[in-house]
Design a protein around this nucleic acid. Structure first.
Length: 446
DNA sequence: TGAAATGTTGGGGCG
DNA sequence: ACGCCCCAACATTTC
């Protein structure tokens, strides 16, 4: 058996900086694990023809791979399968990236779900995880195969900034993924329903990059979580809440299967006439965490520093760009794509469209997050914003989510000169809200 | 997985 | 002691 990884930079959406960092370290971990098992990892550059070439070089009889759910790669996979078949090579592929095969979870009428909750109700009814399989333990070493080596991939040619924040936050690799799941189920699951929206706590599983990079599969996560669900009580309820979030990932991939254009075009085409603004200064302030709204700025700084942002804060920060600044969701999506270690071609656009209102959100009203209220509700002590915005850390709780309302003497006492050490709000919330509502209702009529 | 406007209630200050 | 006002806290309605 020859473990092979093909880096095909033209085979799908090109990975962003944080993704390249993760992939580099994940491949290193995988290579180390395989060497410890007595073999190693062969690295080749794409396109997928590299697989065919290696099969010819080595006389392989069977080629196995995990299918990517990206519609962009499906054609390449099919072509490779045909080519291998014509060489007399058997192909066996697997879907380990998702719980189900996209296209197989349908309404009674046989149509795709457009709303999450009915999708979830159906999924939890029909889905049962397959039994665990054993890892392959005996891998015969392979010799004499040309191996590019990790440094030749160039994945770290232009490293994200700052890399040390990523390294201090994350440990890519299969072992770390499993350790994280185990720790979460043991220590975090029971409090998950209450803490999952609290960016000041470690209330979520933080499995998203491990899942995205295939270091752990959703079926295993479901299996381990559901095992705790069998007994009733707080564990059962918490397991339900957690698996529901795992199903969002599934939902977004199914949406992209049925509507591949969701990655770049408005899912609701009424938004095609939406009056997006060109606002380079606003976009820049948002990217750098200098909007003057602490909850937004903390999130954007956490993202840049760690390659990750808490889910609740993603909604607030994304809503701010799209609704308060009226910047096209694709601009924000592109930034997240470059910055996130869990950047995913289905989840990232799907969630951005949900926030923008152009996606699969069943809410009958226009959802505009108030960054101050969200801060008070989900970061009640201000610990989260203080961690990421040290320049306002000395401000008392009462004003921590709205520094511009603090009396001048309290600002001075906290070492804050509004507009100098920390920005005044770049837009007024009430005015921006009215502007967004007007634009949204016009777009809806169109 | 929202927010704001509106409605309700109950406690405390005060004449 | 009593009624009145104010307001915070909470609940309900509406978009």
């Amino acid at each position: 058996m020859i473990p092979l990884f093909v880096l095909d930079e033209d085979g799908g959406r090109p990975p962003g900086g944080a993704s390249r960092w993760w992939l580099h370290h994940s491949l290193r971990a995988l290579g180390d694990d395989l060497r410890a098992a007595g073999t190693g990892l062969v690295l080749r550059r794409g396109p997928a023809a590299a697989v065919r070439n290696l099969a010819r070089e080595t006389g392989a009889r069977t080629v196995f791979w995990n299918r990517s759910p990206e519609p962009a790669t499906a054609a390449g996979d099919a072509a490779l399968e045909t080519a291998l078949a014509s060489d007399g090579v058997e192909v066996r592929t697997f879907n380990t990236f998702l719980l189900t095969e996209p296209g197989t979870v349908l309404t009674g009428a046989g149509t795709p779900y457009r709303v999450f909750t009915p999708f979830w109700n159906r999924l939890r009814e029909i889905y049962r995880p397959p039994p665990a399989t054993h890892a392959i333990t005996a891998i015969r070493p392979h010799d004499g195969i040309e191996n590019g080596g990790l440094d030749d991939t160039g994945l770290l040619a232009s490293p994200p900034d700052p890399t040390d924040g990523l390294a201090k936050t994350w440990t890519p690799g299969e072992a770390a993924a499993h350790a994280r799941l185990g720790q979460f189920l043991a220590d975090g699951l029971v409090s998950y329903p209450g803490d999952r929206d609290r960016p000041d706590l470690i209330g979520t599983s933080r499995l998203s990059p491990h899942l995205h990079w295939g270091e752990i599969g959703p079926a295993e996560v479901w299996r381990a979580t559901a095992a705790l669900r069998t007994c009733s009580g707080p564990h059962a309820d918490a397991a339900e809440v957690f698996l529901r979030e795992l199903a969002w990932r599934e939902f977004n991939h199914h949406l992209m299967f049925h509507w591949p254009e969701i990655a770049t075009r408005n899912w609701r085409d009424r938004f095609d006439s939406f009056p997006w603004r060109s606002d380079p200064h606003g976009l820049d302030a948002w990217q750098r965490g200098l909007t003057g709204y602490p909850m937004v700025d903390a999130g954007m700084r956490e993202l840049r520093h760690t390659g990750w942002m808490h889910n609740r804060v993603r909604m607030v920060a994304a809503s701010f760009l799209v609704k308060h600044l009226l910047v096209d969701w694709r601009e924000g999506e592109a930034w997240f794509w470059d910055m996130l270690v869990d950047a995913d071609p289905a989840n990232n656009p799907g969630n951005w469209q949900w926030v923008a209102g152009s996606g699969a959100d069943a809410a009958p009203y226009h959802r505009i997050f108030n960054p101050v209220l969200q801060g008070k509700k989900f970061d009640p002590d201000g610990a989260y914003v203080r961690r990421w915005i040290p320049e306002i850390a000395a401000l008392p709780d009462r004003w921590i989510h709205k520094p511009w309302t603090a009396p001048p003497d309290r600002l001075a006492a906290s070492g804050i000169a509004l507009g100098e050490t920390y920005p005044a709000p770049i837009v007024d919330h009430a005015a921006a809200r009215e502007r967004a509502l007007a634009a949204l209702s016009r777009a809806q009529e169109a």
